[in-house]
Structures are given as C-alpha cells and as structure tokens.
C-alpha cells in the first residue's frame, strides 16, 4: 500500500449553487489517524462522504486506497472502508452480534471465522461478551458506540471513516473509549479519518490534522507541527480556545 490512504486533488463540492468545499488538496497518511476539525457546516462530513463515494466531487480528483474512487461495484470498495457515526447507528432490529457480523455474513465468511473475529473485537473494544445478544436499545450510549466501532472494524478494513463517533458520550466514557479506540487502531494498523469539532479529541487521537473552514483547508499537517505553529487567524484562535492548557 502507498504512503497515503487518501489523496484529494483540487477537489470541489457544491450543493446547488453553494460550494461547500473548494480547492481541497490533501494527502492523508496511511495506517495513522487523521483528524478533520472545523465548525459545523464547514464540510467535514462532506469530505468523509467524498472518500467512500457516497458523494461525488464536482471538481478535482480523489484517490482512496491506492486508486480513484470507483464508480462501478462501489459496494465492494466500501467494504474495505469501515464506517462509524455519532450515536452508532446500530440497526435496532438486530442484536449486537447480528449488527457487527452482518457484512461478514453477507460476504460469506465461515461461521467459525465470524465468531472468532467477533470475540476478538469485543475484547479489543472492551465490550462484555454478555452483551453480544442484546438489542441496541438495551445498551448504554458508550456500549452502543463500542459495538458500532466493532461493526466498522469487522471486515478488517484498510481504512476507517469516523463521523464524530465520540461526540454524544459523557466525558468519562468518552475518554475511555478514545483510549480504547487508539489502542485498537494501532493494533489493527488501520488508517482512520476522524471527523470532529473537538480539538482536544483530535489532538489526543490524530497524528495528522486537517483544519477546515471558509470552504477549504485552512491548515494541514502533522498534529505536533500544527499545534506548534498554527496559522494566524482562525486556526490559532481555535487552538488557543480549545487547547489552551495543553500548549
């Protein structure tokens, strides 16, 4: 695999006449976590959805996992990319086990392999085995989110797209879960794209930072570099307000 898990070249995206993203050029490192930070409505989620082909760019080109986002058999491509959202988005009619293993079953994995991988993930994400056959409604928010991350990781994807998965949690489970995720991500060696509006979370989890604003990239680079040398203006203010004590 190349050094980059995703490469954006002069990418633009508009809804009707409104350009939400313009001239976005990025190279996101493989096997690391990149965080995309910015205010609501700055195009963070749009950027994620461009990466897995749910949205198509109106300008520029996007390479993901070593090639352009395919237009045919896009489902097979998406199965190489795990996806987790705020609130977990678990299917309410399926148990934790059924939610997590759905894709593996559709892919025709043998039952033992499914069971083995499922147990491995429960362990990695700190989810009690007793919860495996509960429905999502019986789980706490943090447990649901862990199950959602298990589902995203089930097929051993090359990349994870994370749309504010930690946002809706209480501070304690949030910190716990972030640590758990960071360790799981390293163990799996998976590239991750984390969308968040929380600079602190980004700084804790990401090796690479992308600050979005004003319809484009305000600053991108290794987390340490960005924190050390924020661009004057919005980025600097953002870091000062959110990371004041850490810096």
């Amino acid at each position: 695999m190349s050094e980059h898990c995703a490469r954006f070249r002069d990418v633009g995206k508009r809804y009707d006449d409104l350009w939400v993203l313009q001239d976005v050029s990025l190279e996101l490192p493989a096997r690391h976590t990149s965080a995309i930070v910015g205010e609501s409505g700055c195009g963070k989620t749009t950027l994620l959805q461009l990466a897995n082909g749910v949205l198509r760019p109106d300008a520029g080109t996007i390479d993901v996992l070593g090639g352009p986002v395919p237009t045919t058999d896009v489902e097979a491509f998406r199965r190489r990319i795990g996806y987790a959202v705020q609130g977990a988005g678990l299917f309410p009619h399926l148990t934790v086990r059924a939610n997590v293993t759905l894709l593996a079953r559709l892919e025709g994995w043998p039952a033992e392999r499914i069971a083995e991988r499922f147990e491995e993930l429960l362990d990695e994400m700190g989810l009690a085995a007793g919860l495996a056959d509960q429905y999502p409604i019986q789980l706490s928010g943090g447990q649901q989110q862990r199950a959602g991350l298990c589902r995203a990781l089930m097929l051993k994807p090359d990349m994870l797209l994370l749309d504010e998965p930690f946002s809706a949690l209480d501070p304690i489970s949030r910190v716990e879960l972030c640590e758990q995720f960071a360790s799981a991500q390293r163990q799996e060696g998976v590239s991750a794209l984390l969308v968040t509006h929380d600079m602190r979370e980004a700084a804790q989890l990401a090796d690479y930072l992308v600050i979005l604003g004003e319809g484009g990239v305000l600053q991108a680079g290794a987390t340490t570099e960005v924190i050390a040398k924020p661009r004057p203006g919005y980025v600097e203010r953002l870091l000062n307000t959110q990371l004041g004590d850490l810096r």
Binding site: Q49, E75, F77, Y83, G89, L102, L103, R151
Partner: peptide, 9 residues
C-alpha cells in the same frame, strides 16, 4: 447512510 457507507447494495 450507515447501510450505504457500509457497502450494502
């Protein structure tokens, strides 16, 4: 959105 992003047809 999840179903689509997961790669369900």
């Amino acid at each position: 959105r999840v179903a689509k992003a997961m790669g369900l047809t």
